[in-house]
Design a binder for these strands. Structure first.
Lengths: 165, 165
DNA sequence: CCTTGACCTCGACCATAGTCGAGGTTCTAG
DNA sequence: CTAGAACCTCGACTATGGTCGAGGTCAAGG
């Protein structure tokens, strides 16, 4: 195991991996996608500043809440000088994650009530059923709360337009 | 538009697409993955029995609840002779979907409470945080209700084992 | 100095749920 | 009989979040 630069306390990728519990390949992947940064040694090896550990923690925690890497990256980039989130940053951002979570829970509950109304009904007749025809969606809650918004674009790129193209 | 076989009332793929609202490519995809079946004309074109319409409705409705195609296929294959679900089948199976939904909602609520407890805490210190360390997961609820089961296999194929392999 | 473990890049691959296009065939109306 | 719409297969591509291996380099201890 390589020893740590005594002056600046930089971490090699294996060390960061071990301390964060995130695989080496995932760390490289995060860098590729602009979520973390690394300095390089003369020999082109990555060296991480210690605050990257916090950054990785932030990323994993946000992921556990179901936030996509793209959204996490945006949240990080929105910070002044793209700094690693402070505790205050975390409080603010995680409150936003909480709203996302609320929205997703609400969407599932709405869906459940639809399903309940549908369990005994003529659903499979393919007409007159909310579950069949509603415009709301479940999909990996992309950007924002576009939940049961019937006015949104149709989620099934339907046969007619498919053929038209 | 081709006319329907008067004797058996079979549907061409375009007709099934139009009536079900599911794209032609998706219908072929479903067939490829064993969710629906088609007879063939002498010229190798698909012809669908009318009950496939019900089957497709079942598939789409189940998908809207967030069930994966793999799980839907299993549910369909579990029916006697892999018949198209009757109304009674739908009642039974959709009750199962409902439990899945309940489990997913419970998982999200659990997560939310963890997040709440974590918003002001030292989360980002990477220690002593439930959100950081818990074994529960969100991921596209695979097979069954493996929700916040700390005994389950670690979801982060961690650095150590990655290196070991 | 040399070995060995840790590191590097790049490209291919996993699952999920399809879409799109190329190149060729079939079906049906006129 | 023929035009054209609808159909066929197959392979490549989309996005997400990575993993794995090949082939090659770096760094540090003995």
């Amino acid at each position: 195991m390589p020893s740590v630069d005594p002056a600046r306390n930089l971490l090699a990728i294996g060390q960061l991996s071990e301390r964060s519990g995130v695989s080496v390949s995932a760390l490289r992947f995060y860098e590729q996608h602009g979520l973390i940064v690394a300095e390089r040694t003369a020999g082109n090896q990555r060296r991480y500043r210690r605050d990257v550990l916090r950054r990785v923690a932030f990323i994993r925690t946000s992921q556990r809440v179901g936030i996509t890497l793209a959204a996490i990256r945006e949240a990080l980039n929105a910070l002044p000088e793209s700094r690693t989130p402070t505790r205050a940053d975390w409080v603010r951002i995680s409150a936003g994650w909480r709203s996302e979570l609320d929205a997703r829970i609400a969407a599932l509950e709405h869906l459940r009530s639809e399903l309940d109304g549908c369990i005994g009904c003529g659903c499979l007749s393919l007409t007159n059923c909310e579950l069949q025809n509603a415009g709301d969606r479940l999909g990996a809650g992309g950007d924002g709360a576009v939940l049961w918004d019937a006015a949104a674009a149709p989620r099934i790129p339907d046969a007619a337009s498919a053929r038209a193209r």
